[in-house]
Simulated scan of single mutants.
Amino acid sequence: MLGGRGAGKTRTGAEWVRGIALAQPDFAHQSSRRIALIGETFSDARNVMVEGPAGILSIHARHERPAWSPSLRKLEWANGAVAHVFSAEDPDSLRGPQFDAAWADELAKWKHVEETWDMLQFGLRLGAHPRQMVTTTPRPIPLIKRFLADPSVAVSRVRTSDNAENLAPVFLDTVMRRYAGTRLGRQELDGDIIEDRPDALWTRDVIEENRIAAAPPLARIVVAVDPPASSSKRADSCGIVAAGMDENGIAYVLEDATAAHLKPPEWAAKAVALYRRFEADALVVETNQGGEMATGVIREVDPSVPVIGVRATRGKYLRAEPVSVLYAQARVRHVGALPELEDELCDFGPGGLTSGRSPDRMDALVWALTELMLREKREPRVRVL
């Protein structure tokens, strides 16, 4: 179970253990269950998994609650079921004991994750159907990646917001406003596994270090459009990105309005609306797809909008590389969270995206920042205040 902070992972794990402990044995000769409880440390296992507000003791009715012996690190139910508590700091403690079930909590944080997991597997040898449950906020560690690729592993996902009824409204409002959409928020609130592609032009660390909440006054703003070749269901999306630059030469990515399955009048209207909202200086439109049609359809929507046509003469990687250098030089800021655009940037390498799809959001971003920062400077449009 992959989930965000406060999403209910501990309660789910505790209820699962309760169900295992109070269920009938698999075989008539097996008098009781043997369960392993493994936390990051013994203190974590005790304070969260056993004694915590959503832990094993608190979710049992009084008449069925197990006896807890902290010194023995053991829970005992009246029907004979027993759970032993272990720390992932000591993998060797799992040598010898045997179980028919195990609950592993916050596995992505374990110090000796591979060694502890391996020792646990050798101990799961009781009953007709040994099973185990992992509850964790995900991180891109190899073991979790193997779980996700294993067809025998059932994967559940839950977000912090899914458990809103059981969380303090002030907490939820505060963390959502500050972290929603950021790398940290997507990991800790949405339960997503966020990682960088090793050969990608962009890294999430660089983007995060240069994220800001609001842009300063900008000297020039453009909206860039990367039109699709068609509007069919299989067609590429229409990349639409707004960006600006201040008087110090720092660029700010303002919004990603990319959309799929739009007909030419629809994406043109969407781009023009974004241009109007940001009081931009121009629309930058790639003309490789459709040539004059791309600029013509915008003029049909609003003939007063200044349109700068650009044509790709080099491959996407060669066009994107100078823009990624601007990020590395801390000359580009993302205003707020732009998760889909950032996913695309951090997944774009020499061979394109790992999905094989067209990087339409990235293309629009590259055109916008190239126009603002890598071409001969243009005079900003005069704004009437």
Rank of each mutant, 00 (worst) to 15 (best):
A61V: 09
R139I: 04
F27V: 02
L120N: 02
A164Q: 14
N288A: 08
L365T: 05
E51R: 11
R33N: 10
P216Y: 08
D199S: 04
D302C: 00
S304F: 04
P217Y: 01
T313R: 14
Q98D: 13
A294R: 01
N47M: 11
L72K: 15
V253L: 07
N166Y: 14
D281L: 02
R157I: 09
G52M: 10
G80F: 03
G4R: 10
A7R: 09
L283W: 10
S231P: 00
R183V: 15
V175Q: 01
R62G: 04
P303K: 01
S31T: 14
G349F: 01
C346T: 12
A104P: 05
L318I: 14
L72Y: 09
R125A: 13
E64H: 08
A128K: 13
R319N: 11
P142C: 03
E114W: 08
K316I: 02
P66Y: 07
E106C: 10
A330M: 09
E40A: 15
P339T: 03
A164G: 08
E51F: 08
T354Q: 03
T116K: 03
V153P: 06
N47T: 14
A268I: 04
A67R: 14
D360L: 06
E247P: 02
P228Q: 05
L2Y: 15
T12V: 12
M176D: 03
P198A: 12
P53E: 13
R95W: 05
V335L: 01
T370A: 07
L107M: 14
L365M: 13
V85R: 00
Q132T: 12
D26S: 11
V241Y: 01
A149S: 14
N166I: 05
E376I: 07
V223C: 04
P217S: 11
L201R: 06
G351H: 10
A280H: 01
P265H: 03
A273V: 06
P217W: 02
R319W: 07
A200P: 00
R204Q: 10
S355K: 10
K270N: 09
A213R: 15
R234K: 12
Y327L: 09
D26T: 11
I194W: 04
R159Y: 07
R375P: 09
D302V: 00
G336Q: 10
E209A: 15
L126Q: 14
A320T: 10
